[in-house]
Design a protein around this nucleic acid. Structure first.
Lengths: 159, 159
DNA sequence: TTTGGTGCAAAGACTTTGCAAAGGT
DNA sequence: ACCTTTGCAAAGTCTTTGCACCAAA
């Protein structure tokens, strides 16, 4: 049997509170896999939940520390959170529509470790994000959504 | 013959001003290859240069757009700039002392492109940073520098 | 009850911007 | 002289924190 969210929270030492349950549910519902604090806050507002933005930030950070969520920073200046399923992956971000694709490449992982070792280091973690455009914009089902800027309004492009 | 900085600036359409020349020199001198806006500002202060922090930010951004500098964001929340020598590389950041090592791995580059292509994208750019610790702290000549205090005393730690 | 969590507003860190004065060509 | 750039301070964006009140255990 799958443990309830309440149980899951308790096991991390966090008290089971409304804000924490609601926020966890939002991520589990999977409406949007990658969300900023503000994305979460907006959903809560829509749900008429009386939860402050500061609490959202606090809970997201706690969830990250508890291993429930994973934080990524891309180049947007905002932190993006997603459910941590234990399986590591990196991200490919579409510059046209903001869509985020997850990928895992064993060879890349291997080479990263090798690079660190060769330089006398012990690899602890890494952050890899690919920024790309749709190769076939005409047929891209997401391309039109560009105007709605799903992942962040700011056109703060990398590099 | 190597073009002067003044010529270089002119060729980008930027006027040749004291702040721009000074900042360009700082990067060329190579005292510190990777610098934040504040790092640059601190050097200018040391040099008794009367250049405002806002100007530093503006110039760094202009230089980035002109292709003179490259910006990286790592996970620090601050932008880090370095001279853009045209040769692409990624970064390995030491979690102990903050040292930044540059590396280039053709295979990683290749796989990144492949990943994007396989997902129907055209890779535009990427950001890859490895975070590692010294494998041999005792013999690491940089380890003691751990207390690398920037400028502003951002002494804010959780209670 | 006791401990920790929450909301709000204010503060903090980094960066950008408005505007009048100064500077480059 | 013209138009850009600068310095300063104020504003902006994302995030954290102080504190009084509230809720979970």
């Amino acid at each position: 049997m799958v443990p309830s969210n309440a149980q899951g929270l308790r096991s991390t030492g966090l008290k089971v509170t409304q804000p924490r349950l609601r926020i966890l549910e939002i991520f589990q519902k999977g409406v949007q896999r990658h969300m900023t604090a503000e994305d979460v806050y907006r959903v809560l507002l829509d749900e008429q939940q009386d939860i402050g933005l500061a609490t959202v930030y606090r809970v997201l950070t706690q969830f990250e520390q508890a291993g429930i969520l994973r934080r990524s920073n891309f180049e947007s200046g905002k932190s993006v959170f997603e459910i941590n399923e234990g399986t590591h992956h990196d991200h490919l971000v579409c510059l046209d529509c903001g869509r985020v694709v997850e990928f895992y490449d064993a060879e890349i992982e291997r080479r990263q470790k090798k690079v660190a070792t060769e330089h006398g280091f012990e690899l602890q973690e890494h952050s890899l994000a690919l920024y790309a455009t749709c190769a076939h914009k005409d047929s891209c089902p997401h391309y039109d959504k560009a105007a709605h800027a799903p992942l962040g309004t700011r056109a703060h492009h990398p590099g």
